[in-house]
Structures are given as C-alpha cells and as structure tokens.
Computed example of a mutant assay.
Amino acid sequence: MNFAGTMLILMGLLLLSGTTKLIMAEESSQATVTAHCLSWRLNVEANNLRHWKVVPEECIEYVGTYMLNGDYERDLAAVIEQAVIYARQFSPGEDDGRDAWVLDVDETALSNLEYYKTRKFGGELFNQDAFNSWVFSGNSPALTATLELYQQLIKLGFRVFFITGRDESQREITQDNLISQGFTKWDGLILRSESDHGDSAVVFKSRKREELIKKGYRIWGNGGDQWSDVIGNSVGARVFKLPNPMYFIS
C-alpha cells in the first residue's frame, strides 16, 4: 500500500472515532436528561415538588413518552390493583348503605390525554377556555383501570361519589361523558358551584367530604390524580394517589 492509501485509511479511522465519540456524547447527554426528568417526575408524584405551572421544557419529550409508551398505564394499574385488594376486605352490601368511596373525575375516571397531546403534555400554560371546550366535547375516554375499580366498588356495595373541580355548568356533559364510558351509577356527582369559586382544590374537596361524613357516610377509600384530591380534612380511611406528571392543581 502506498503512502496516500495509508493516509486515507488513517483519516477514515479518525473520522470514525470522532463520530463514535459524538454519538457517545449525545447518548450520554440524553441519558442525563432522562435521569433528570425521572427524578423530576418522582418528586412530582411524591408531592415534594409543588406549585409548578408547566412541565420543564427539557422534560416534555420524556413526559410524552411516559404517557404513551405504556409506563403510565402500568403505573396506574399498579395503584388500582392495590385499591381493589383493599376494597375487597369490606362487605358494605351487608351494612347500612353508608360505606362510601370517593373518586375524582379528570385523570382519575376520565382521561384528557388526547387534549394534553395538543398542549405538549403539560409543557404549555393551562388555558381554561381551551380545556372547557374539550370538556364540552364530551370525548374523554374512561381510564380502563379505574373503570374496573369502579365496577368492583359497585359490585361490593360501596356508595360511590365523584368530587370534581369541574364547574357546575359542566354537570350535564360530565354526567353524559361518565355514563357513556361505563360509569353508570353513583350516589353523588359533586362539582364546583358559584359559592365554591375562589377556594383551592384542597379546601373545596375537604368541605365536600366533610359534608358526606356529616350525612353519616364512612369514606373508606379516596382516589385521585392530584395530591389536592387526597389531602386536607376527612380524606378517608385510605387514599390512592394516581400518577399524573402533566399538571399540578393545589
């Protein structure tokens, strides 16, 4: 082999080495971002990270992947499985009809993932008007795992109450949407009335649970995707926090 040929081979090897290093650097950088976003999501779910407005820009792709690749469904199913196991310890159908279970609506009974796909999975600031338009479309599908829990609760004889931050003006469409997705029976669908406006979710939902207890109901289970669903007063004997890294409601 002549000198020119040798130099071409050497140059090729150098270019290959440089490309390999660039690929490795990019992979390392992506792994760092993924690790950072995993820690961010963990802190969100543990309620260590609060009052955030949007998903960090560097984590939008991560959250989108989490929501769509099956991880979200698996995490949700794991929570619901524990709720079902717990619920089966009771025989409320043989009691006085006052054994209750509370469920949230959005991202608990019904999914708004199709809406949040258009909002960078929470990477854009919340737009109340746009979300209201989505709600009034009545197209929110059931979260399958929660529907299975609901069916078990009804079969066991629990009194199911939905407590949602949706406005009273959305009662009819919310009711129709729930029924169309298989949630056909409940003892209460509680929405925000005009007098509830201005209260935080924690204050509003605590007050509504307290009202149920004053009526003689025993809240054995309480499930929601926000910490504001499951903290405060009269939360119930046991709470089940469902995953949701797309938005935060205080």
Rank of each mutant, 00 (worst) to 15 (best):
M1I: 13
M1R: 13
M1C: 11
A4Q: 10
T6M: 11
T6G: 08
T6H: 10
L8H: 12
I9S: 09
L10Q: 06
L10A: 11
M11W: 04
M11E: 08
M11A: 11
L13T: 14
L13R: 11
L14V: 13
L14K: 00
L16S: 14
L16T: 09
T19Y: 00
L22T: 14
I23F: 05
M24A: 12
M24Q: 11
E27N: 12
S29P: 06
Q30D: 09
Q30M: 02
A31S: 06
T32S: 04
T32Q: 09
V33W: 01
T34G: 00
C37L: 05
L49Q: 15
W52K: 04
V54W: 00
P56S: 05
E57W: 00
E58L: 04
I60V: 15
E61N: 05
V63Y: 00
T65G: 06
T65A: 03
T65V: 08
Y66D: 14
M67C: 07
N69Y: 00
R74N: 15
A78Y: 07
A83C: 07
F90E: 13
P92H: 09
D95H: 04
D96L: 08
G97L: 03
R98T: 10
A100F: 01
L103I: 02
D104F: 00
V105M: 01
V105P: 02
D106R: 03
D106A: 01
L110N: 03
L110V: 05
S111A: 14
E114I: 11
T118W: 05
R119V: 14
F121T: 13
F121K: 03
G122F: 13
E124A: 10
N127W: 01
N127T: 06
N127Y: 06
A130N: 14
N132F: 08
S133V: 09
S140A: 15
S140W: 07
P141D: 00
A145E: 14
L147W: 05
L147E: 07
E148R: 14
L149G: 12
Y150I: 01
K155M: 05
L156A: 12
L156G: 01
R159E: 15
T164S: 15
G165D: 14
G165W: 12
E168M: 14
S169R: 15
Q170Y: 03
T174N: 13
D176T: 09
L178M: 13
L178G: 05
S180V: 07
F183S: 11
F183D: 05
T184C: 05
K185E: 15
W186L: 08
D187Y: 06
D187A: 07
D187Q: 11
G188I: 09
L191S: 04
R192I: 08
S193T: 14
E194M: 10
E194W: 02
S195H: 10
D196K: 05
H197F: 11
H197T: 15
G198D: 12
G198A: 07
G198T: 11
D199W: 10
D199K: 12
A201G: 05
V202H: 12
F204A: 07
S206Y: 07
K208C: 07
L212K: 12
K214L: 04
K215V: 03
K215L: 15
R218G: 08
I219G: 08
I219Q: 08
G224Q: 05
D225P: 02
Q226L: 03
S228Y: 03
V230T: 02
V230L: 04
I231C: 00
G232P: 06
G236I: 03
V239F: 04
K241T: 00
P243E: 10
M246H: 00
M246F: 06
Y247D: 09
F248I: 06
F248G: 10
I249P: 15
